[in-house]
Simulated scan of single mutants.
Amino acid sequence: MNPVTQDKEKITKCFMFSVTAEKKKPTYFTTQLSDYKTGSLIGKSSFASTCVYTGQFRMTNKIVAIKRYNLNNISTEEINLIQREIIMMNQLTNPFIMSSLVSFVAGCEVILILPLMEYGSCSDLIKKHFFSGLPESVIKIVLKDVLKGMEFIHKKGIIHRSVRASHILIGSDGCTRLTGFRYAYCKKSNDNYTNKPRQIFEFPQNSESNLNWVSPEVLKQNMCGYNEKSDIYSLGITVCELANGFPPYINIRSTMMLMDKLNNKIPLIYDSSNINNADDLNEDIIKAFSSSYSNRKFCEHLHSFKNLCCTLNPEERPNEIMLLNHPLLKKSRSRKKPFSELVFPITPIKEEINVKKSQNKKMEREKT
C-alpha cells in the first residue's frame, strides 16, 4: 500500500472516532476550517507536529484556540493517542477539565476547536517570566483546581497518567483546566471508585517525555499494577516543577531516577530552608537560581503537601479529597488579589491580541 493511501486511511479512521465521540448536545461552532480565522502560534509540540493557534470564529467573532494535528508520517500508535485525546475531550464536561468545542478533519489534519485559555499553561508562565518558579499564591490556586479536575476524572474511572505543568492551562480569571488526555487510561464503566480502586497494568504508550512525573508503581511494571493514586504522585512532582521552575530528575539518567523513586528519595522544593543542603542541583542551576531560592521561604504546608503526594506506598498516599482539605489549601479559600496581579507583568493572550489589533489600525490610519 502506498503512503498516500495509508494517510487517507489514517485520516478516515480519526474522522470516524472524532464524530462518534462527539457530545450529543447543540454546538455553535461549525466543522469547516474556513469558518475560522487563524491567528498567532501560541503552542507547539513535536508530537504529530501539533500546533496551537489563537483563532476567531468568523460567524460570531468568538476568540478560540485552534489545535491542529498533522497526520502525515505518524505511526498507528500516535493515531491511537490522538483518538484517545479527542474522545476524552469530547466526553468530559467539567469546569476544571479542558473539553473541545468541536472537532473535525481538514485535509491531512485533525482540528480541535478549544476555549482559549488566555494565560497558556503553567509551563508557559515559567518560561515567560517566573524562571525560578511560580509564587506560592499562584501554586495554591493551581493545585486546588487541578485536584478538583482529578477528582472528577477519577470518579469516571479515568487515570490521567500525564499530570505536569504543561498540561495545566490557565484562563484569564485564574481558573485552571487539566488537559493532555492522550496518555489517559479509562477503566471499565462498571468499576466502582468508592471501593478499592482496580489495579491496571498497561504502561502508557509514547510516554518517554513524561517519565520524570510518572509514579514508582507505574515505572515498576510488575504484577502489583497501579491505580488513580499514581496521578497524585505525579501532582507531587508537578508541585516541585511549579515551585522550582523545572521538574526534578532533569539532569540524571532514567535508571538513577527510578532508583531515587524506589528508594523514596523525595525531590525538594528549594528555598532558604534547604538550598545550602541541596546536593542534587548541578552548577548551571545553582548559578542561575541560587540567589532566588536563598531569598524566598515557602510555607511548611507546601513542603508537607508535596511530601504526602510523593509517598512511596500508594495505599498510604492521600486521595484528592484528603488533599483538598490539607491546611495548604484550606487557608486559601478566598483570593485577596485578582489573578492578573499575582502573575504581573504577564498579560493574557486576548489582551495581546487586542493590543496588536490597535497597533495595526493605528498603522493603517498613519498610512492613509
Rank of each mutant, 00 (worst) to 15 (best):
362 K>Q: 09
43 G>H: 11
187 K>Q: 08
251 N>E: 11
211 L>C: 02
115 P>V: 02
283 E>M: 08
146 V>H: 01
189 S>L: 05
232 I>F: 02
147 L>H: 02
119 Y>W: 08
41 L>F: 07
327 P>E: 05
98 M>P: 01
360 N>D: 15
110 V>L: 14
234 S>Q: 02
139 I>N: 02
77 E>I: 09
20 T>M: 14
245 G>F: 12
109 E>C: 12
254 S>E: 15
253 R>M: 15
115 P>S: 03
113 I>K: 06
30 T>Y: 12
270 Y>H: 10
332 S>L: 03
218 V>D: 00
121 S>H: 11
200 I>E: 03
257 M>R: 15
135 P>S: 05
86 I>Y: 12
36 Y>C: 05
12 T>I: 05
150 M>H: 08
143 L>Y: 02
134 L>V: 07
117 M>W: 14
77 E>L: 09
285 I>E: 04
178 L>M: 04
119 Y>C: 09
11 I>W: 06
243 A>D: 01
282 N>P: 02
136 E>Q: 06
33 L>N: 00
145 D>F: 01
341 E>M: 09
306 K>N: 01
21 A>R: 07
247 P>S: 12
114 L>H: 11
237 I>E: 07
292 S>Q: 04
295 N>Y: 06
101 L>V: 02
267 P>A: 13
358 S>W: 07
312 L>I: 04
266 I>E: 14
341 E>T: 05
235 L>P: 02
133 G>S: 03
99 S>N: 07
73 N>V: 00
24 K>M: 14
324 L>Y: 01
103 S>I: 02
10 K>A: 13
217 E>H: 05
123 S>D: 12
125 L>A: 09
99 S>R: 03
257 M>L: 15
40 S>T: 10
260 D>N: 15
261 K>W: 06
167 H>P: 01
47 F>A: 12
301 H>I: 01
232 I>Q: 02
177 R>T: 08
68 R>N: 09
348 P>C: 11
122 C>D: 04
17 F>S: 00
242 L>M: 14
305 F>C: 02
270 Y>Q: 06
203 F>Q: 08
336 K>Q: 10
191 D>V: 04
248 P>Y: 15
139 I>W: 04
174 G>H: 07
124 D>Q: 12
189 S>K: 09
227 N>M: 01
172 S>L: 00
328 L>F: 06
49 S>G: 13
50 T>C: 15
144 K>V: 02
101 L>K: 11
233 Y>R: 03
112 L>S: 13
348 P>I: 11
27 T>L: 09
27 T>D: 14
43 G>A: 10
254 S>L: 13
197 P>I: 03
281 L>K: 06
280 D>Y: 15
169 L>Q: 13
224 C>Q: 08
259 M>Y: 10
351 E>D: 08
266 I>D: 10
14 C>I: 04
94 N>A: 00
268 L>E: 15
266 I>A: 12
56 Q>A: 12
52 V>P: 05
9 E>W: 05
42 I>H: 10
136 E>V: 04
188 K>A: 10
178 L>N: 01
10 K>F: 11
11 I>L: 05
250 I>D: 05
279 D>N: 14
46 S>H: 14
252 I>K: 06
349 I>N: 06
24 K>L: 14
261 K>N: 07
366 E>R: 13
163 V>L: 11
262 L>K: 07
79 I>P: 14
60 T>G: 04
53 Y>E: 12
307 N>C: 08
24 K>R: 15
11 I>T: 08
181 F>H: 03
